[in-house]
Computed example of a mutant assay.
Amino acid sequence: MHPNQITEWKPQLSERTAGDVFGKPSASEPEEGLKVLHAKIGQLTLENIF
Score class of each variant (00 low, 15 high):
L13F: 15
Q43H: 09
E8L: 11
P3Q: 02
E32R: 10
L37V: 15
E32F: 08
P25Y: 04
K10E: 11
E32I: 14
T7A: 15
Q43C: 05
K35Q: 12
V21M: 15
N48E: 10
G33V: 05
S14T: 13
T17C: 11
E8C: 14
E32C: 12
N48W: 04
A18C: 11
G42A: 12
N4T: 12
A39Y: 02
H38G: 07
E32M: 12
Q43L: 09
N4V: 10
E31Y: 03
T17M: 08
Q43P: 00
R16A: 07
I49V: 15
D20S: 09
E29M: 03
Q12S: 11
H2G: 13
L34H: 06
G23C: 10
P30R: 05
M1P: 11
A27P: 08
V36E: 15
A18W: 11
E32H: 06
A39K: 13
E29W: 03
A27C: 02
G23M: 10
G19L: 02
L13C: 08
S26R: 11
L37Y: 07
V21I: 15
L34V: 07
G42C: 10
K35Y: 02
W9E: 10
N48D: 00
P11W: 08
M1K: 03
E31C: 10
L44A: 06
Q43N: 10
Q5T: 14
F50P: 00
K35W: 09
T17L: 11
L34G: 04
F22K: 05
K24G: 11
G42R: 07
A39F: 09
E15K: 06
S28G: 02
I6Y: 10
